[in-house]
Structure formats: C-alpha cells, structure tokens
C-alpha cells in the first residue's frame, strides 16, 4: 500500500506492481521458444520417428516383429525382471524410508548417501560389479560354478543388476514426504492402542500411498528400460537372457530397422503410460502435500 502511494508521489502515475516482478515480453517469448523447440527436437521428434519407422512397412510387419519368438521371449523376460525387482525395491524403499525418517540412529546420513549411490554410478559399472562378484573370474565365481549356480549370463544376474540400478526410486520419493509428515500420527496411533502393523497399514501407508505409487511407477519404467547394467551381465543369449532393450539393439545391429523400431515402440508406449500415471500421482501428491501443509499451519 505505502509502496504504491510512494510511486504515485514520485512518478505522478500509478504503476502496475505486478509488472515489475516479471520479465519483459521478448525475454518471456524467447524463454518459451527455447524450451518448446528443445522439447520438439529432443522428445517429440524422436518419439514420432520411433512410431513412424515402426509402422513404415505397414501394420502387418509391425505385428509380426512383435510376435516373433525372440521378441516374445524378450518381452517375457522384461516383465519377469520387473515383476521381481519392483516389489523388492518397494519393500526396500519403504523399509529404508521408515528407518531414515522415524528413527534416530548413527550413520543415518551415510545410509541416505548409499541409497543414492546407483544414481551416481554409471549403469555399466553397476553391471560390472556383479560380474566381478559372481562371474567365473570373480570372488564367488569358483564356488558358484562348483555348486552349479549360474548368475552371470543368466536371469538371476539380470534381476540383480536391475534391482541395484532401480533401488533409489521408491526410497527417494518417500523420504522427503515422510520427513515432512513426522512421527506424530504414528505416535497418536500407538497411544490409541494400535499395534505396529496396524499403525503401518492404517496410518503410515495411506499417508504415503501416492508418493509410493509414484516411486513404483518410476522404478518400473527404469526396470523395464534398463540397458547398460543388464547388457553387461546378460550375455545377449537370444530367447534366454535378452530383455526388450537388448533385443532392440540386436535387431538394430542386424539392420532390421522395422523390427527394431517396432519393439522399441513398446518401450516408447511404456514411457507414455508412465508419464500419464506419473502426472496423475504427482497431482494427487501435491494435493495431499497442500492439505498436509494447511494442517501444520492452521
């Protein structure tokens, strides 16, 4: 109020206070244009290319590429890998977030840093770690070979590498939310006589459900799409250790572009579905955070 009055006195005209706070029009247009053209160049165009290439020689060939035995095997292995690693990481993420946010203990910051490790390590290195551990020349290689357990160049290796690469997703989503929510509601439940499991199912889980689903969907997208780490441990055995991304690479290297793009379009579709779900969960989460904030500061 006083600001406006001051401006009137000095300049003799009333200024729109909001205009001072935004950039001039050319700058705004430039920024919008830059971000839109980037989006077009690096997201929309490649996505369109995938589908147009895949369908270039007609839908018949497209379906055939997907129904081919090797493709079906790759799809099956990818689904199987995701089905194992996503629930595992959901449990791990919940446990880690619970430990980090609801308890006080030594080495908490170290745990948080370690959770982030897979994000900062190149996926190829992640794969190599498992080769070094379980490969024939690795630490446990001889013993595993003697026991007849195959991990590297087999499905267990693929699952292990995928679990490793995707384990931060759920925990990373839950920790900030659970930190913000504090322990009050859990304590209230305990005082009211609820057991540990009851408290978890009726209070903690409903409070984090959108963040959890958000983390799970990101985790799933990465689990199905992971290339680097899986590529190192898989051995690329057709029909046995090929996931969708590896299969795409093989087809591409064989100059079988239509089939490569057809299979790739599956991953692109997965990305779109993930995006839609992610936006929905994000919106729900924001709604919940807003509600939570209004509760904390009445």
């Amino acid at each position: 109020m006083t600001m406006t009055a001051h401006d009137v006195n000095r300049r003799g005209s009333v200024r729109d206070p909001k205009r001072d706070l935004t950039e001039p029009a050319p700058v705004r247009w430039l920024l919008t244009a830059v971000s839109l053209s980037f989006l077009g160049l690096f997201i929309v165009l490649p996505l369109a290319a995938v589908f147009s290439q895949a369908l270039e020689k007609g839908t018949a060939l497209y379906w055939e590429a997907l129904r081919e035995q090797d493709a079906l095997d790759a799809i099956r292995l990818t689904l199987w890998t995701a089905a194992v690693s996503v629930p595992l990481n959901m449990i791990f993420g919940l446990a880690a977030a619970w430990a980090v946010t609801k308890f006080r203990f030594r080495g908490k910051n170290l745990l948080i840093t370690l959770i982030d490790l897979p994000f900062s390590v190149s996926p190829v290195i992640s794969g190599l770690i498992f080769v070094l551990l379980f490969g024939l020349q690795g630490w446990m290689g001889e013993w595993l070979d003697a026991s007849g357990i195959r991990i590297i160049f087999a499905v267990p290796g693929i699952v292990l590498a995928t679990v490793f690469v995707t384990f931060p997703f759920v925990a990373r989503q839950l920790i900030p939310l659970m930190e913000a929510q504090g322990r009050d509601e859990e304590e209230a439940a305990l005082v009211l006589g609820a057991g540990g499991l009851q408290t978890f199912l009726k209070v903690t889980l409903p409070n984090v459900r959108w963040a959890l689903l958000y983390g799970v969907i990101l985790c799933n997208a990465r689990a199905m799409g992971e290339f680097g780490a899986v590529s190192v441990v898989s051995g690329h055995i057709r029909g046995a250790t090929n996931t969708i991304p590896l299969h795409v690479e093989i087809l591409y290297n064989e100059y079988n572009f239509t089939a490569a793009f057809a299979v790739a379009s599956l991953l692109a579709l997965l990305a779109l579905v993930t995006l839609a779900l992610k936006s929905f969960f994000e919106w729900k989460l924001r709604e919940q955070l807003l509600r939570g904030n209004s509760e904390a500061h009445p």
Binding site: D184, E185, E187, A188, A189, V191, G193, Q198, K202, P206
Partner: peptide, 30 residues
C-alpha cells in the same frame, strides 16, 4: 499401547486421510 492414556498432541496429529468419525473411532476399531 497398554498404558491406557489419552494423549492430545501439540499439533493435534489427526489422521489426515480419515474423516472426523474415523479419527475418533480409531482407538475402538484397532
């Protein structure tokens, strides 16, 4: 859990995803 005390928290700590009815009935339902 077994002390049978009622505790009112400074910031209320109501279960935010439950209605008032479900909040009040919680101790009986568990």
């Amino acid at each position: 859990r077994e002390r049978q005390v009622g505790f009112v928290f400074q910031h209320y700590a109501l279960f935010r995803h439950m209605t008032v009815f479900d909040n009040v009935s919680f101790g009986l339902r568990v």
